[in-house]
Design a protein around this nucleic acid. Structure first.
Lengths: 249, 249
DNA sequence: AACATATTTGCAATATTTTGCAAATTAATT
DNA sequence: AATTAATTTGCAAAATATTGCAAATATGTT
C-alpha cells in the first residue's frame, strides 16, 4: 500500500461521508493509526480537508449551520439514499431538490453512473463537482441564504426549460389528507414546478416529517409516485399512503 | 524487453489501476526495481503520471484543484482586492466573474455594503452566503467542473437579463495588441457577454498574466476601463496599457 | 566486420523516508 | 481533580531512493 493510494482513499471517504475516523481507516487499510494521522496531516496541509481530533472532516465551503444539519441522523439518510439508487439509470435527467436527504443521495451516486442532474442546491452541486460522469445543470436565480438554494421566478423559469425523467424530492411535511406542504411560499411554488416537469417522483422523508403539515401547499400526496423513508414500509404510520396507491419503500 | 515496451505496460497498468508498485512490475517484467523506477521517472517527466515513493499513480482525474489554487499567492490577491473596494458603491449591480482574484474581492466586501452581486461562480456565491446585506443572483447553467462555475448558453442567457453597473472581471491572459484571451471557447463567449452588459469593467490580473495570450479571443484591451494588478502601476510592463488609455492601478 | 561510443541495466553502498511503537504530553469528559 | 482518549515526540527498524560504477547492449562509423 503506497501512501498516495491511502491519501486518495481518505479523500474519497471524506468527500462521501464528510468525515473519517482514524480507527476506521487504520483497520480498513491495515496500517497504524499513527500513519493515518500523518496522512491526514499531509492532506490538511494542502487544505484538502480539516484534521480534527480522532480523524478528519471535509473542508467544504458550506458553512457550519448547514453542516450541522448534514451530520444529523446520518444513518437514516444513508438508508434512504441506498434505497433510491435502484431507481437511477444511465441516461436519465434527474432533478435533485434541496435538503440533506437528497444531498445524501447525491453523495452516494456510484462513480460510473451517467445521468444529468438538474438542481438548485449548492450542496448538491458541490457534492457532484468531483463526480467523473455526472453532468450537472444548475438552476440559477436569487440566492436563498440559509438553505443554500436558489429560489424565485428565475429559478422556476430555469426548471421550466427541463423535462425530467425523475425528481428526487425532499419533503418538508406530508400528510395523507392535507397533502405536501412547506414553510416558505416561494419554496412551495418552486417545488410545485419540480413536480410538474418530472415524469416520476421519489419523495424522501425521515419519519419525523410524516403526518405533519406546514402553511404553504404544494400538492396532494398522490403526486408522489414513491415515498422512501428510513422506517419499515409496513409501519402503521404509513398505512394511509399505501391506501392512496403510493409506493412505499 | 525494450524500454518502450515497458513504458507502455506501465502506462496501461496505471490507467487501469490508477497506480503501480515497483515491486509488482519488477517481478512481472523481470527487470530490477531500479529500471522500473527509471522508467517511471521518464514518464513522470512527460507528465504522463506522477512518481511517488514505491511506484506511481495516475494523474488524478480531478484537476488539482480549486481549493488548492485558492491558497496560491494570497498576498497578491489581497492587494488587488483592497484596490477594488473603492469602486463599489451601495445600490450597484455588480457582476463577479469566476477566478481566485475575484473571489478574494468577494471575501473582503465590507459588512455594510449593499450591492447586488450577479455571478456564475460557486465559490463567490459561497463566500457571500453569510454576508448580511449583499443580495446574490446566481446565473445557472451547465456546471464547468474544473473551475466550479457555470457555463454555456443558459448562463449567457441569464446574464443577458441583467444590466450591470460594474463588472469585476478575472483575466486569463491579456496582451496590448492581441487583446484579452482565454483557454476555453465557451468561457470566452461568456466573458464577452459579461463585458457587453456592464457599464464599467474592472479587470483583475496578477502580473504573470500580463502580456500573454491564449487561443480564444474575448475582445480588445480597450474594453477594459481599469486594470488592477499586484504590481506598481508605473511598471514598464504596463506602459502599453497606459497608452491605450486604460486606467491602471 | 571491427571498432569506438553512447545508452541501458543491475548491483552495491549510502542516504532518506516511512512506519509502528512507547513514553510523555495535551485535551476532553465526568 | 481524576479518568479516559487522543496527540505529540523521539526512536529504531523497515522500506525505498540515490548515486556511482561496471557489465551488457545498442548505435554509429569507418
Amino acid at each position: 500500500m503506497v501512501r498516495e493510494e491511502r491519501l486518495q482513499i481518505i479523500l474519497d471517504h471524506v468527500s462521501k461521508d464528510n468525515r473519517v475516523l482514524l480507527t476506521e481507516l487504520s483497520e480498513k487499510l491495515n496500517v497504524s493509526e499513527d500513519t493515518i494521522r500523518r496522512d491526514i496531516k499531509v492532506l490538511a496541509d494542502q487544505k484538502l480537508l480539516t484534521a480534527v481530533r480522532g480523524g478528519a472532516v471535509a473542508h467544504s465551503p458550506i458553512p457550519h449551520h448547514y453542516r450541522a444539519r448534514e451530520q444529523h441522523d446520518v444513518a437514516s439518510k444513508k438508508v434512504i439514499a441506498s434505497k433510491v439508487l435502484s431507481f437511477l439509470k444511465d441516461g436519465q435527467v434527474v432533478i435533485f431538490d434541496g435538503g440533506t436527504s437528497t444531498l445524501a443521495v447525491a453523495q452516494s451516486l456510484p462513480d460510473d453512473l451517467r445521468i444529468t442532474v438538474v438542481t438548485n442546491s449548492f450542496p448538491v452541486a458541490n457534492a457532484l463537482e468531483d463526480h467523473p460522469t455526472v453532468e450537472v445543470i444548475f438552476a440559477g436565480g436569487r440566492l436563498f441564504k440559509s438553505s443554500f438554494t436558489t429560489i424565485g421566478h428565475e429559478t422556476i423559469a430555469a426548471f421550466r426549460n427541463i423535462r425530467a425523467d425523475l425528481c428526487i424530492f425532499g419533503i418538508c411535511s406530508v400528510h395523507p389528507t392535507i397533502g405536501i406542504t412547506t414553510r416558505d411560499y416561494e419554496e412551495a411554488e418552486l417545488k410545485k414546478t419540480m413536480l410538474e416537469i418530472s415524469k416520476e417522483t421519489i419523495a424522501l422523508s425521515t419519519h419525523e416529517k410524516i403526518n405533519t403539515a406546514d402553511p404553504y401547499y404544494i400538492g396532494p400526496v398522490t403526486q408522489l409516485g414513491t415515498i422512501i423513508t428510513d422506517i419499515c414500509p409496513h409501519n402503521e404510520q404509513l398505512a394511509a399512503y399505501h391506501e392512496a396507491g403510493i409506493n412505499i419503500l
